Simulated assay, not measured.
Amino acid sequence: MKSLILTAAAGLFLATSAHAGVIESACNRSDRAAGKRQLCNCIQQVADFTLDRRDQRLAARFFKDPHKAQEIRQSSRANDEVFWKRYREFGSAAESYCS
């Protein structure tokens, strides 16, 4: 019985780890979030509620290349402006929910 419970727990851990979102994965790999897995998980949860998959992939790039965020913020393209509004709302929500 004990072996069955340990096997189930290991499977649950692997399933949870394998399904980390793109933002959570990028956050965990970043230097700034070292040792803050709970924070990265929380940020991903907020992203799941506020950003679609495409937005999440773009936002995840900001962890590796912060200058990309600056380029999009300053862009005059309509799509970038709309994305930046959603991204700011996501950032505010993550700050409130995850702090």
Rank of each mutant, 00 (worst) to 15 (best):
S17E: 12
Y87E: 09
A47T: 14
A59N: 03
S92E: 14
R61G: 13
L6W: 11
P66Y: 05
A20Y: 06
A60S: 12
I43N: 15
R73T: 04
E95M: 13
S92L: 12
E89C: 09
C42L: 02
N28D: 13
Y87W: 12
S25L: 11
P66G: 01
K64Q: 08
S92V: 11
A33T: 05
S3A: 12
S3G: 06
A9W: 01
E81D: 09
D31K: 09
K2Q: 14
S75F: 05
V22Q: 08
F83Q: 07
D65L: 04
L14G: 07
C40V: 01
L6V: 06
C27G: 03
A60Q: 09
V22M: 09
R73Y: 02
A26R: 03
I43S: 07
I43D: 05
E24I: 01
A93K: 14
T7E: 04
D48E: 10
K2D: 07
C27F: 02
L6Y: 12
F49Q: 15
N41W: 12
A10Q: 10
Q45K: 15
Q70D: 13
F63R: 06
A15D: 03
C27S: 04
D55Y: 02
H19C: 14
C27M: 04
V82T: 08
A93Y: 08
Q44P: 14
L4H: 11
S17Q: 10
A47K: 08
L39N: 06
R86N: 13
D80T: 09
R73D: 00
S96V: 09
D65V: 04
L39T: 15
A78D: 14
C42P: 13
S76P: 00
S96W: 06
A20T: 04
T16E: 03
G91S: 14
V82N: 05
A8N: 06
C42V: 05
M1D: 12
A18F: 10
K85M: 05
A93F: 14
D80C: 02
R37T: 12
S3Y: 01
R37M: 06
Q74T: 08
A33R: 02
N79R: 12
F62W: 06
Y97W: 08
S76N: 06
A59K: 08
T50C: 03
T7W: 07
T7Q: 12
L51N: 00
I23P: 03
R53D: 14
R32Q: 12
R86V: 01
C98E: 07
S92H: 07
K64D: 11
R88I: 06
S25G: 07
R88G: 00
K68A: 15
I72M: 07
A60C: 13
L58F: 06
L12W: 06
F49K: 11
L4M: 11
A15N: 00
K36V: 03
A26E: 02
Q74I: 03
G11M: 13
R86Y: 02
S3T: 10
K2I: 14
A60N: 08
R29K: 13
A9N: 05
I43E: 15
R32Y: 05
M1H: 08
A9Q: 10
F49L: 13
H19K: 05
L4R: 04
D55T: 04
A47S: 04
T16N: 14
G21D: 01
S92F: 05
R53A: 13
H19S: 11
Y97C: 08
E81C: 02
C40Q: 12
A33L: 11
G21N: 01
N79L: 14
K2T: 10
G11K: 09
M1K: 03
F83M: 02
